[in-house]
């Protein structure tokens, strides 16, 4: 079965791995890791510019804007209003109308506030954004976000930065069965096999940051994540064998 690109509204990507730009020790390591990941979409955050003292280096100096599509996020927003404001500012930067919407509910869990997330989705869709929305793995709210016009719904595999992998594959499967928009697992990925699991389930992509940025060797891990994503996608497209309780010999059982 031939694979197609990943379509997100008017955008289309060959790589199904989306990676973040946070928590790297240096911009140089980040640059190499982005390259090794093969990602075409990279996430960034919106924050106050440094106005005191020397201007530091800009993240954007290390990102080839012809090569990568920049996906700004609304990380750190705890209300729909804040998230909408952040999205509008991000769009004003003139780079894209894509937004990774996060409306968080609580600082310890960084779980989304479902009500605020839904409200912000509705507003941003009306404003003409291509909304990729971070949510929990609850299939009901996922469906509501799709109905509100989200281009992609992005359930967390596990809490942000926790590296616990896909904690509830059943919920992800229900989301995949219930929704028709592309599902991208966002958050919780710790290592390559987590990416593979998500892709084998049939997710259209995986978005991760900490799993690469905080690995001992981020560049090597980025490559591992790339291969894992491709591998999981291929396995999904190939159609795995069903799981059986009893053995089924691979060699002929007949006598010589």
């Amino acid at each position: 079965m031939e694979d197609t690109g990943l379509k997100l509204g008017k955008y289309e990507f060959n790589s199904r791995l989306f990676v973040g730009t946070g928590k790297y020790q240096t911009f140089d390591i980040m640059k190499d890791a982005l390259e090794a990941s093969g990602a075409e979409v990279i996430t960034v955050a919106v924050r106050r510019a440094n106005i005191g003292g020397k201007p530091g280096e800009s993240l954007l100096d290390y990102i080839d804007k012809d090569k990568y599509t920049i996906l700004p996020n609304t990380a750190g927003c705890y209300s729909a209003d804040e998230a909408v404001r952040t999205a509008l500012l991000a769009r004003e930067m003139g780079i894209s109308d894509l937004i990774k919407l996060e409306v968080l509910g609580d600082e310890n869990t960084l779980l989304p506030d479902p009500v605020g997330t839904l409200q912000a989705t509705e507003t941003l869709v009306k404003e003409g954004f291509t909304v990729l929305v971070y949510t929990s793995d609850d299939p009901i709210i996922a469906k509501r976000l799709q109905d509100a016009g989200a281009t992609s719904v992005m359930p967390a595999g596990a809490p942000i930065g926790s590296g616990q992998g896909i904690l509830n594959p059943n919920n992800i499967r229900i989301i995949l069965e219930t929704l028709s928009v592309p599902i991208i697992v966002d958050a919780g990925v710790g290592t390559a096999s987590d990416v593979t699991v998500a892709m084998e389930l049939g997710c259209e992509g995986v978005l991760l940051n900490t799993g690469i940025a905080q690995a001992k060797d981020p560049v090597k891990m980025a490559r591992a994540m790339k291969l894992a994503c491709e591998s999981g996608r291929l396995a999904y497209l190939s159609g795995r064998i069903p799981k059986k309780l009893y053995a089924n010999a691979s060699s002929p059982l007949k006598d010589f």
Binding site: T21, G22, Y24, T43, V46, A49, L59, N73, M93, L208
Partner: peptide, 10 residues
């Protein structure tokens, strides 16, 4: 005034 820019994030 609020002046914002892009920084590293996930």
């Amino acid at each position: 005034l609020e002046i914002v820019t892009f920084v590293g994030g996930g």
